[in-house]
């Protein structure tokens, strides 16, 4: 992790908007997304980030049909 030459990114899901379509999970070139076992408020298995490996390419953002489904931004040390 520490010797990654990518800048680190954070992909943030708005879990309650997720319809569990799985397109982002399928398209992420680094396979760092999974579909949760949990159900969200709307009864879907929401997508989640495994916590590392995101390069900030934005592909998941563009494949998500929900306008506010996903944000991708540089990882800041203050964010968990």
């Amino acid at each position: 992790m520490s010797n990654s030459h990518h800048r680190r990114f954070n992909v943030e899901f708005h879990e309650d908007l997720c319809k569990g379509c799985g397109l982002c999970v399928h398209m992420c070139p680094h396979h760092v997304l999974v579909q949760s076992e949990r159900l969200n408020r709307r009864g879907f298995h929401p997508a989640e980030y495994v916590g590392e490996g995101c390069t900030g390419c934005g592909i998941c953002f563009h494949t998500c049909p929900e306008p506010s489904g996903i944000d991708v931004e540089p990882h800041s040390p203050t964010s968990a």
Binding site: G56, G58, F61, P67, D71, E73, P74
Partner: peptide
């Protein structure tokens, strides 16, 4: 680097 958020 680019960030990706809901378009305005």
């Amino acid at each position: 680097m680019k960030e990706f958020h809901r378009p305005e």
